[in-house]
Lab assay of single mutants.
Amino acid sequence: RLTVMSLQESGLKVNQPASFAIRLNGAKGKIDAKVHSPSGAVEECHVSELEPDKYAVRFIPHENGVHTIDVKFNGSHVVGSPFKVRVGEP
């Protein structure tokens, strides 16, 4: 089962990169992540390998409000996905 680490749920800033990590815990497959902005825009997140069992997911929010992040592994949502994060002040 995958572990999502260091996902900041609030206090993110517009046009500043945000990232979190995913540990695969021995699982093999493909991570896919997309961020949905409050206006409905959908953007791919950048996924990069940090070490053999750990990946970083990076995105840049372009507007204030609550964004939804879909994180999928081999086509299925990971536990807790979709995640909600707040950009800007509430």
Rank of each mutant, 00 (worst) to 15 (best):
G65Y: 01
L2M: 06
V4S: 09
V79L: 08
E89R: 10
E9A: 03
K72G: 03
D70G: 11
P90W: 05
A21I: 15
C45Q: 04
G75V: 04
V57I: 07
D70I: 10
V57F: 04
A33V: 12
V42F: 15
L7H: 06
A21Q: 14
S37N: 06
R86Y: 12
K13W: 02
V85W: 11
G11C: 07
L2H: 01
V85R: 15
G11Q: 06
A56G: 15
A18V: 15
Q8C: 03
T3F: 08
I22P: 00
E63V: 12
P17D: 15
R86E: 07
D53A: 04
S39D: 05
G29T: 02
G88Y: 02
S19G: 06
V79H: 08
A56C: 12
E44P: 01
F83N: 03
V71D: 00
E89P: 02
H62L: 12
E44D: 14
V14M: 02
A56V: 13
R58Y: 13
H46A: 12
S10L: 04
E51L: 04
C45L: 06
P38S: 08
N64G: 13
A27V: 10
K13I: 15
N15L: 08
H67K: 00
S6L: 10
V57Y: 15
V78Y: 04
N25P: 04
V66D: 14
L2R: 02
I60L: 07
A41E: 06
M5I: 15
S6I: 05
P38K: 02
R1L: 08
P17T: 05
F59V: 06
S39P: 10
P38D: 00
S10D: 08
M5A: 15
E49P: 12
V35S: 04
D70V: 08
E9P: 02
H62K: 13
V4T: 12
H67L: 10
L24V: 06
H77P: 07
S37V: 12
P52T: 14
E51K: 05
H62R: 12
R23A: 12
S81F: 03
Q16G: 01
P38E: 01
L50E: 10
P82K: 03
P61K: 00
S6R: 14
G11V: 04
A56M: 09
L2Q: 01
H62A: 11
S76T: 13
S10P: 03
C45K: 04
H77L: 13
S81G: 09
V87K: 00
A18R: 01
V87Q: 01
I31Q: 00
G29H: 06
P38R: 03
G88P: 07
T3D: 15
H36R: 11
H62D: 13
V57L: 03
D70E: 07
P38A: 01
E63W: 09
R58S: 03
Y55G: 10
N64Q: 14
G26L: 02
V87H: 01
A21F: 02
A33N: 04
E51T: 07
H36Y: 08
A27L: 06
R58K: 14
A18E: 03
S76Y: 09
P61V: 02
A56E: 12
V87L: 02
N15T: 02
G65C: 02
G80P: 05
F20G: 00
K13D: 05
F20Q: 00
Q8P: 12
G65W: 01
E44V: 02
L12Q: 03
V57G: 14
V79K: 07
S10R: 04
S81H: 06
V71M: 11
Q8A: 07
K72L: 13
F73T: 06
V42N: 07
K13T: 10
P82T: 01
N15F: 03
V14R: 05
G75E: 13
D70F: 09
I22A: 00
G75D: 07
Y55H: 14
F59K: 00
K54S: 04
